[in-house]
Design a protein around this nucleic acid. Structure first.
Length: 409
RNA sequence: GGAGGGGUUCCAGAGCGGUCAAAUGGGGCGGGCUGUAAACCCGUUGACUUCGGUCUUCGAAAGUUCGAAUCUUUCCCCCUCCA
């Protein structure tokens, strides 16, 4: 089997392939261009997209060129796959902004220097915006039957659940197939990768290329990564795990990996780090918490750099083992003036943005969930005065895991 | 266009004139146990509060009533069947 495919499988990336044998032969023979589409509904990607990103990296590692398709056009439609409800359609400016930011994030993960594997970023709006309806129907639409389209999961589940599916969304799969055709023609792209939920869309593209241009293209999908708890990857208690430090600090990102379920650790080391498979085999019986730290370090390193990863590790150590504070603990500052106005514990937490409901904070206080410098606070009217600060710092904790530094300046 | 069913808090889903900030389950959050894990147990889960209460919620608006998530009218949206 081709080396790329083998590693793809060994690492647990593999779910389905349209024609594995031929693809393997092709990959042995030449370096190819392969694409993955990213949708641009949000300003940042979150860890739910990380597996796709790892696929791009793996392509590069094996000398292939990844094409990143930013769905500027298709985001204007909305993919019905895996969605219960029609999602809100974003306006042009938001989509443009999202595209720029997502591109920036992806560049953290990809090698943009090597000219042979340098990724191509492309926005499908460039060809979708100018489509002529009639000619599109004649050239492309004729290759699709409604019978078949209705049989796709993305459509079927919507209908079965008695949820509406607009004609616009129904067309999404045709547009995605068309994307593949365009990339095949323009960029000689012969492979599309995606999550297993994209299988139907990908197959459509492969078939369209076959029918329209009589060329062979391939599709390869990755499994849906769920946490051992059954939850979808990407969300935690405090919201989505963003890949942009504007939305999630490197420390919190590190914490996400540190807090992975025991059962997921080895799997994730294979998927989300660059550690070689046999290296992972060697350490698989090591202390589970050490492995989690390793995972957290490697994963954070890839996105935020080695220094941030190290700092986060140290901060975590100080926070959880020594009950002190580390450099990388997120912090807020308040002014002396604010202190003089006698702000109380509730206001302080509101300021810290760790919580935004006063009732919730009161509940936390009643349940022994709030601590200042590791002392449980029982008085919700506690006034924050200077005596509480040690060297101008307070460690404010909500529950066991949310900690923040408060500074006076 | 016609006939029927439906829209309830994060989700699912009860309630069908006062006892409703709304059962139950899931999820979330906090506490306990632990390893910053899982499982388990307990508490909590609209907002604000001087902790007495106060205010805003059951698709939207208007109405009936001392009193409406519950009844009436209009409107909006969804689903099924027929045309």
């Amino acid at each position: 089997m081709n080396k790329f495919l083998k590693e793809f499988k060994d690492r647990g990336f593999f779910y389905q392939c349209t024609n594995e044998d031929n693809l393997s032969k092709l990959l042995d023979k030449e370096k190819i261009n392969a694409y993955i589409g990213f949708d641009c509904t949000a300003e940042s990607l979150h860890v739910g997209s990380l597996l796709q990103i790892m696929c791009l990296r793996l392509l590069q590692k094996h000398g292939h060129r990844p094409i990143v398709l930013l769905g500027g056009g298709t985001t204007r439609i909305g993919d019905p796959s895996g969605k219960d409800k029609t999602r809100t359609i974003l306006n042009e400016r938001e989509i443009e902004k999202n595209i720029k930011n997502i591109e920036k994030i992806l560049k953290n993960f990809l090698d943009i220097k090597d000219s042979k594997t340098k990724p191509i970023f492309i926005n499908n709006y460039t060809w979708l915006k100018g489509l002529n309806y009639i000619s599109f129907l004649r050239d492309i639409g004729k290759h699709f039957t409604i019978n078949k389209m209705l049989s796709f999961d993305s459509v079927k589940t919507r209908l079965e659940r008695e949820q509406s599916l607009s004609y616009m969304e129904f067309n999404y799969m045709i547009l995605q197939a068309y994307d593949f055709l365009e990339l095949n023609k323009k960029k000689n792209c012969v492979l599309q990768l995606g999550g297993s939920d994209q299988w139907g869309n990908i197959v459509n593209g492969v078939e369209l290329i076959k029918r329209h241009s009589n060329k062979q293209a391939y599709g390869l999908t990755t499994p849906l990564i769920t946490l051992a708890s059954g939850a979808k990857m990407g969300k935690t208690e405090s919201g989505a795990v963003w890949l942009d430090k504007k939305f999630l600090s490197p420390y919190d990102y590190w914490q996400f990996w540190r807090n992975i379920d025991d059962r997921d650790v080895l799997k994730f080391l294979k998927i989300f780090t660059d550690l070689k498979i046999d290296e992972i085999k060697k350490i698989e019986n090591d202390d589970i918490n050490k492995l989690k730290i390793l995972l957290a370090n490697k994963a954070t390193e890839m996105l935020h750099g080695e220094q941030e990863a190290k700092k986060s590790e140290q901060t975590a150590k100080k926070t959880f083992e020594d009950n002190s504070m580390g450099d990388n603990l997120p912090s807020i500052s308040i002014s002396e003036n604010e202190l003089k106005k006698k702000i109380n514990i509730i206001d302080l937490i509101i300021l810290s943005k760790l919580e935004n409901s006063k009732s919730e904070i009161r509940r936390l206080i009643k349940g022994n969930g709030i601590r200042i410098n590791n002392q449980i606070i029982n008085d919700e009217r506690l006034i924050i005065n200077k005596d509480l600060f040690q060297k101008n710092l307070i460690k404010l904790s909500l529950g066991k895991k949310r900690h923040i530094k408060v500074k006076i300046n």
